[in-house]
Lab assay of single mutants.
Amino acid sequence: MTFKLIINGKTLKGETTTEAVDAATAEKVFKQYFNDNGIDGEWTYDDATKTFTITE
């Protein structure tokens, strides 16, 4: 399955996707992406659209 990440950061904005077997696996991938890029904020997940959103 394809999961999308929408980034609404102070310095970084955009979208990316990842292929994962489930939302929990995608969450781990995206959290690592947050850490690697110094993004910290509030994030949500919409199961209907398989979209994670992080807002700094």
Rank of each mutant, 00 (worst) to 15 (best):
F52H: 00
W43D: 00
G41C: 08
G9H: 09
A48L: 10
F34M: 15
M1W: 13
T53N: 03
Q32L: 10
L12K: 07
E42I: 14
T17K: 07
W43L: 14
A20P: 01
L5F: 09
K28G: 06
K13L: 08
L5D: 01
E42V: 14
D40C: 13
G14H: 13
K28D: 05
T51F: 01
T44K: 08
Y45W: 02
E42A: 10
E56S: 06
A24H: 09
E15I: 12
E19S: 10
W43M: 12
A23W: 11
G9L: 15
G9S: 11
G41A: 09
T51D: 00
T55I: 06
N35V: 14
T49H: 04
T25L: 04
T44M: 08
E19R: 12
Q32D: 08
D36L: 12
Y33R: 07
G14Y: 15
V21I: 12
K4P: 01
L12W: 14
D47E: 12
D40V: 14
F3K: 01
I54N: 01
I39A: 05
K10G: 09
T2C: 13
T44E: 08
M1L: 12
A48W: 07
D46P: 00
T2V: 13
T49V: 04
A24F: 09
T17P: 02
D22G: 02
F34S: 15
F30H: 00
E15L: 08
N8K: 10
N37R: 14
I54A: 05
E27R: 07
V21A: 12
T25Q: 12
I7E: 01
T17C: 12
L12H: 12
D46E: 06
A48S: 11
A26G: 01
W43N: 00
A20R: 02
F30P: 00
D40L: 13
I39Y: 08
K31Y: 05
N37W: 15
N37K: 14
L5V: 09
D22K: 01
E15T: 10
E27H: 09
F30W: 04
I6E: 02
A48P: 06
K50T: 03
A24N: 07
D47F: 06
N37I: 15
D46R: 02
D22N: 08
K28T: 08
T25I: 06
N37A: 13
F3I: 02
Y33K: 06
K50I: 02
A20I: 02
A20Y: 03
T16L: 15
I6K: 05
A23V: 09
D47A: 13
T17I: 07
N35D: 13
W43A: 02
K13M: 10
T49I: 05
K28P: 01
T44F: 10
V29E: 06
A23M: 10
T17D: 04
E56D: 07
K10V: 14
Y45N: 00
Q32Y: 06
T16P: 02
A20Q: 07
K4T: 14
G38I: 12
A24G: 06
T16W: 15
K10R: 12
K4F: 13
M1V: 10
K31L: 09
E19K: 12
K31N: 03
F52Y: 04
G38E: 10
N35I: 15
A23S: 08
A20K: 02
V29I: 14
L5I: 06
T17S: 11
D47N: 07
G38K: 11
F30R: 00
F3S: 01
N8L: 13
K28Q: 12
G14I: 15
I39V: 08
V29W: 13
T2W: 11
W43V: 06
K31F: 06
D22C: 03
G9P: 03
A20L: 02
G9C: 15
N35L: 15
G41H: 09
D47W: 05
F30A: 03
F30V: 03
Q32N: 08
T53F: 08
T25C: 06
T11W: 14
G9I: 15
I6F: 05
I54S: 02
A26E: 01
D47T: 06
F52R: 00
T53M: 07
I39K: 04
K13F: 11
T51V: 04
D47R: 06
T44R: 06
K10W: 12
N8F: 12
F3N: 01
N8Y: 13
D40M: 13
E15F: 13
D46F: 03
K50M: 10
K13R: 11
L12C: 15
F3Q: 01
W43C: 06
E27Y: 15
E15G: 06
T2A: 05
V21F: 11
Y45S: 00
K4A: 03
D46W: 02
G9A: 08
Y33T: 04
E15C: 15
F34P: 01
N35C: 11
N8C: 13
G9N: 05
I6L: 05
T16M: 15
